[in-house]
Amino acid sequence: MSDSTQTAPGHPAVQMTRGLTLLFAFCCGAIVANIYYAQPIIDLIAPSLGISSHSASLIVSLTQIGYALGLLFLVPLADLVENRILLLGSTALATLSLVAAGLTEHPGSFLLVSLLIGFSSVSVQILIPLAANLAPEATRGRVVGSIMGGLLLGILLARPLSSVVADHLGWRSVFIGAAGLMLAIIAVIAMTIPRRQPSHSASYGQLLASLAQLVAGQPVLRQRAFYQALMFAAFSLFWSAVPLELSRHYGLSQSQIAVFALVGAIGAVAAPIAGRLADAGFTRRASLLAMILAPLSFCTWLLPSAWGVVTLALTGVLLDFAVQMNMVLGQRAIYALDAASRGRLNALYMTSIFIGGAVGSALASALYEHGGWPWVACAGSLLPVVALARFVASPQK
């Protein structure tokens, strides 16, 4: 099937060079970091705004719910509206939302702004299908994997960065600094990201209505979304609960938690590896490996207590590697379904993932408060086991 990409009048066709791939990766990492800055510092934000400890993880959950809403209602416009205009508008909204988060004093206002931060940060999911459209079929998995590597580094580095900044300058400085970075990203997008005018002629309402048709007609999309939603729920559960365990059980400061979070960044190497495996035709075997590794990673809490923080670090590295690998494999599979619908396919795939992430984050505080780390580890193991069982029973990718 032919690609829907059209360059704007007067503009030559653009190819995904290595330099442009790196630029896309940087922009994706910087933008997606917005939805993770709050995760390791909710113990600082919540008491400052009068939010109870049991409800603190709502800050993270609402950001992820906002992201899911943006994926469902904003990202489909990538199949209709000129992509660079859409990117600039959503990034400008992210900038304003981050400034508001850094200035608000009211808990309800902060939770609403958290929702908006998530909603406006979905521009990364416009950049990734744009790259897939520009890349040749033979290297599409490699290009998407490289960009996902940048995105995942943004996810993983956001936590240590926010911990260090909050520890030395206060938690509000995290959001103000992020707003400044978004202004720089707006300039980069305006000057370097190529224009793309989709050839789709449907209205916005018809595009939204077509989402249900895509879900009904694409079993690979349904299955991949289900697998990754459960995997990402485990991922969000771990990274929302582990700062509580590190500060309360091990007495680590925010700066020390930041060092711990850096360990998780090792898992980002899975993205380009997964892209190459998918291009080589090893999608199913690599997916099986990822879905076995994820539940096993939580079993490290059964190791001798003398290992201490090392067991948590090992869980973080293995879990991140498994989740990132499975995410890229899923994206490569759904991008092969229909070139003209990549924006919407990606929106549906990522919406389900972040709904799973929101559930995992929402469970984190309650599980930890009632049963400590063993409850978190048991729930974290169970989620990917369900995905694994469904995967083994399915003949699809």
Rank of each mutant, 00 (worst) to 15 (best):
A364M: 11
I35P: 01
L77S: 09
L127M: 15
I292D: 01
G264D: 05
A8Q: 08
A333M: 07
P136F: 13
I31Q: 03
T311I: 00
G149L: 07
D3K: 13
G380Y: 08
D279W: 07
I355D: 01
A233Q: 07
L20S: 05
L115S: 03
V359R: 08
G177V: 04
V14W: 01
L86D: 07
V174T: 09
L207M: 14
S53M: 03
L262F: 14
A258P: 05
V124F: 10
D3V: 10
G380K: 08
A270F: 01
N346G: 07
W301S: 01
L20M: 14
V392N: 04
A377P: 13
A280H: 10
Q324E: 08
L103M: 09
L181R: 03
C378Y: 14
S90N: 10
M148K: 04
R196H: 12
L72A: 12
I155G: 06
E245C: 04
L314E: 02
G141Q: 13
A101W: 02
M1Q: 11
A389H: 00
L96K: 02
Q223N: 11
S201Q: 15
T283G: 07
S305D: 13
S203K: 07
M191S: 06
L211E: 11
S146W: 03
A336I: 05
F235M: 15
G371W: 12
T311K: 13
L367W: 08
L74T: 02
A13P: 10
V165C: 04
G360D: 11
P243D: 10
G145A: 11
N346H: 10
Q39V: 10
R18A: 12
L151F: 15
V174M: 04
G10E: 05
Q64R: 09
A268K: 02
V60I: 15
A336G: 12
L88P: 08
Q396W: 14
P129G: 10
Q197P: 00
L153S: 11
T7C: 03
Q331Y: 07
T5E: 02
G264Y: 06
R342A: 03
L348A: 12
L348S: 07
D167F: 14
S4R: 02
G205M: 04
L58N: 14
